[in-house]
Design a protein around this nucleic acid. Sequence first.
DNA 1: TTGAAAGCGCTAACAC
DNA 2: GTGTTAGCGCTTTCAA
Lengths: 338, 338
Amino acid sequence: MTGTRPTLRDVARLSGVSEISVSRVMRNAPNISASLRERVESAARQLGYTPNRLAGALKSQTSNLVAVVVPSMSNNVFPEVVDGIDRVLSAQGRRTVLGLTQYDDSREEGIIRELLSWSPAGMILAGLEHSRASRTMLTGAGIPVVEIMDIDTADVAGAPIDVAIGISQRAAGRAMADHLVARGYRRIGYVGAWGESPDRSLKRRLAFEARLAEHGLAPAGRLIAPEASSIGLGRQCCARLLEAAPDLDAVFFANDDLAVGGLLHCMAEGIAVPGRLALAGFNGIDFADALPQRLTTIRTPRGRMGEAAAQVLADPDGGRAAGAIIDLGFTLLARDTT
Amino acid sequence: MTGTRPTLRDVARLSGVSEISVSRVMRNAPNISASLRERVESAARQLGYTPNRLAGALKSQTSNLVAVVVPSMSNNVFPEVVDGIDRVLSAQGRRTVLGLTQYDDSREEGIIRELLSWSPAGMILAGLEHSRASRTMLTGAGIPVVEIMDIDTADVAGAPIDVAIGISQRAAGRAMADHLVARGYRRIGYVGAWGESPDRSLKRRLAFEARLAEHGLAPAGRLIAPEASSIGLGRQCCARLLEAAPDLDAVFFANDDLAVGGLLHCMAEGIAVPGRLALAGFNGIDFADALPQRLTTIRTPRGRMGEAAAQVLADPDGGRAAGAIIDLGFTLLARDTT
DNA sequence: TTGAAAGCGCTAACAC
DNA sequence: GTGTTAGCGCTTTCAA
């Protein structure tokens, strides 16, 4: 059909102007006469010209690519975040380049390096904990960096790199501890997954348990599975935890999948919820109030985190002016299972 | 920290060889002496050199980017597909560049054009229906194109562009019709969402209804909501459909979310499932068997579709040799709600 | 096995 | 408002 794609030069020749003028028209640069613009645009249309981004980005040292590094799409959290990011980016004519670590933190550094080699206009990363080398690369890259999900920077040296947007995972853990205690539960357990490798869940749990301690309560049982989180895993873990600690009266799960699994276990075993055992999740997925008993959980603003991150990239100073840390807050949904 | 990133030239100077030799070492080109390789690698390490992909891709007219165009991440289908794609791509040192249409087909053309301007090594698209202009761009781009999800090419002119990987949406529609009829249902309705703009659900429904007709049954009710699919929408639609057609004995939903919503409606209204009303979904999400009654549905191999698509890109002839159409098949899960 | 020259397609910097 | 020049950092020739 077409051997080679038309270039700026072809458009310039056809419209009888210089290449740079074509370039300016294509980029909507200021100070272009209407007649020039028209001639160029018509020639471009005629040839079906599309700019070669590689060349433009190479020369200008900047691209319309935004790198997004998150653990995985196979969960209920990041798809909505990425959707939010891309919604805003695409309205700005920018593109999302994905880097998925598959929950293997050791891959992050390589992914960051690789993505930086595309001269992205900015980078969005999940979490605040990154290797020293990663941090060095990012600060040296001279592009805005947004860390999302977590804003508990207190004990992370050098965090945030530029801007952090998310919620306080610790505050969330404390909120759930307060809620369960206020409801009268005293023998409280915990179930996690992924070996707690997303540090966010670890932080949340530690804050949760610390708050229980402030209430005079010791953790009454804890199970952190190494595997991927799922409903089935939640079911198993709930069973195993109850076996090990039969006198539990409440369990906080690291996410809603696990908690739904816990609820299923209770239904199957005829364990009264919340009479005999209370259950709570985290995330606030759609699904969590679709069950016969609506799950008590904490709703996080996932889409908005993504949108806000993309917006800050477009106007980095906006984020910095706001104090480099943007707390989007969470909502504890006290429903039927506590 | 660092003013400018080191370039090939810097590495060449430090190691005392030519730029092209450095380039060859970095790309693992053949016919490189061990001593040269060592000298170059040590210099590169010393400088912290990372290749500039923009320059390399500009010159070589090819990149390690793979463009992925799908409707959205806010559903239960594409996150798993993208995860599968990225799993395979990243093992090949390739990167996913995302283009989300947000279920607006009119955006697809612009997104494809924009993504092609990055000289991707290949493109993965959801669905077989694309505008004439899109098709022309893609065939002219000289890169392998994989269309995923749907393999019903019969009435799509020029499909597949290169390779199609997925399931027969029509066969799935027919399978569900057969299943419901075999179970004895005769007054069968349908609920869809998104205005059926993913043509896949439309195809599936038409085949479903055509098969019912073969069984001598007319559609007993049909509701296609224009909104985004969700559990809540399924609930509403189920209610409205029953109002309009109170004598329905079964409903096929375009996806599991909607079907779960339908089940909730029935539970809330005390409608016996499947005694009074049978329900079936589509996709086979984890969640669909987490309910008190495990949803009858059709399981689609989402992760495998993504993996297979990425694999075909790495070895385009593999896919072409296989006949340009790869049917990954589906499984009808006949469970508690039919 | 290594190198020299040329240029991918575009845009920054500077003219006019 | 428009054009000229130079060169981004790399890889493809081609030569030795």
